[in-house]
Design a protein around this nucleic acid. Structure first.
Lengths: 160, 160
DNA sequence: GTTACTATACTCGGATAAAGACTGTCCGAGTCCGTACGG
DNA sequence: CCGTACGGACTCGGACAGTCTTTATCCGAGTATAGTAAC
C-alpha cells in the first residue's frame, strides 16, 4: 500500500502553475526545472492531469500546460484520482465464497462481504477527507508560513 | 495505490479461527483449504500476523496457529498494519526544497510541507476509521446476515 | 505398570524464483510562430 | 503597406526499457508426539 510519488509532483506543479501567474502556457521543461524532475516522466504525469481535466494543454510553439480552473475548484481528491486512477484501493476477491463458503446459502453470499464493507468504510473516510481539502486551502497554508512564495517563484523563473 | 490481497486473507482467516472454535492449533493447510488458497503463501501472511502478535504459532506435530486474543481486541487497523507494514502510504520526498525551493528562506522549509500535511490528514482519517472497527464488529455483521455461519464452518471442517 | 528414551512425522520459518506495477526514457505527429513573398 | 503562404522549430502524446515491490513457491530447522524398551 504505497501512494505513487506522482501525486506529490502533480500537487506541487498545480500550485506552481498558480503561483507563476503566467498568461502563456508553461511547457513541461520549465515546470520540471522548478523541481529538478526528469522532464519526460513529469510530462507523463501531466498527461494524466489533462485526461482528468485539471489542466489544459496547448501544442506547438509557445505551447504548454495551463490550469483548467482556479485552485478553489480543485480538491486533493481530484489530484489523487487523476494520478492513481479511480478504482478503489481495496478490492474484494470474494474468497469467502470459496471452500467453506460453498456450503453457505446463496442468500448469505448475496449480502456484501463484511470485511469488504469495513475496508470500504475506512476508504470512504479517506476520500471524504481528501475531497474536503482544496488546493486553495493548501496554497493558503503555504502562504501562512511563507507569504513571499509567489514573489520567490516568479523571481526564480524570471532568471531561469 | 493498491492494498494487497493479503489483508483480505488475514481478516477472513482470523474470523475463521474464531468461528472454528477449536482447542487445538490450526495448521496452515487446514486454513488454506477453507478458502482454496495456496498454503505456502498463506503461511507467509500468517507469519506476519505472528510478528504483529495477532496470532500465536505452535511448532511440531499437532501444531498450527491460534488467536492471540479475542476478536473484540483486534481492530481492522491491526490487521492492515500487520500485513502492509506500519509506514505511511504517502511519503513526502520534499521536492519543494529542490529547484525553486532552494531560493526559499530556511525558515519556510523548516515548516512541514503543506501538501504532505493534507495527505497525512486524510490518511489519519483512514486509520482512525479502521481502528474504530474491531473484528468482533465484522463478525457480528456477518452473523446478522448469516446466523448459522459458525455451524456451517464447523460442519465443513468436520468433513474435511 | 510406570518412566525414560528414541525415532518419526509433522509444523513453522525464512530463503529463493516469477510476475506485475511503477519509474524512467525516447521519438514521432501535430501545431503555432516567424519570415518571405506577392499583391 | 498589407495579406497570405510556407518553412522551421517547438511542444505534446503515446510507445518502449529498467527497476522495484508484490506474489508465489520451496525446502530446511525445530518440536511435540507416539512407540519402544528398560526398570
Amino acid at each position: 500500500m504505497r501512494i505513487g510519488e506522482g501525486v506529490e509532483w502533480a500537487a506541487h506543479c498545480l500550485l506552481m502553475l498558480d503561483w507563476m501567474g503566467e498568461d502563456r502556457p508553461v511547457p513541461t521543461a520549465r515546470l520540471a526545472a522548478g523541481f529538478e524532475l526528469p522532464p519526460p516522466y513529469l510530462n507523463k504525469q501531466l498527461q494524466a492531469l489533462v485526461k482528468a481535466g485539471l489542466v489544459t494543454s496547448t501544442a506547438g510553439a509557445r505551447g504548454g500546460f495551463r490550469l483548467a480552473r482556479p485552485l478553489e475548484k480543485i480538491t486533493m481528491m481530484d489530484v489523487v484520482a487523476a494520478i492513481e486512477g479511480p478504482e478503489e484501493a481495496f478490492q474484494c476477491t470474494e474468497i469467502r465464497s470459496r471452500g467453506v463458503g460453498a456450503d453457505s446459502p446463496a442468500s448469505a453470499l448475496r449480502r456484501p462481504c463484511a470485511v469488504s464493507t469495513a475496508m470500504r468504510k475506512a476508504e470512504l473516510a479517506w476520500r471524504r477527507a481528501l475531497a474536503e481539502q482544496t488546493l486553495a486551502d493548501v496554497s493558503a497554508a503555504v502562504k501562512r508560513g511563507a507569504p513571499e512564495i509567489e514573489e520567490t517563484v516568479r523571481a526564480w523563473y524570471a532568471r531561469n
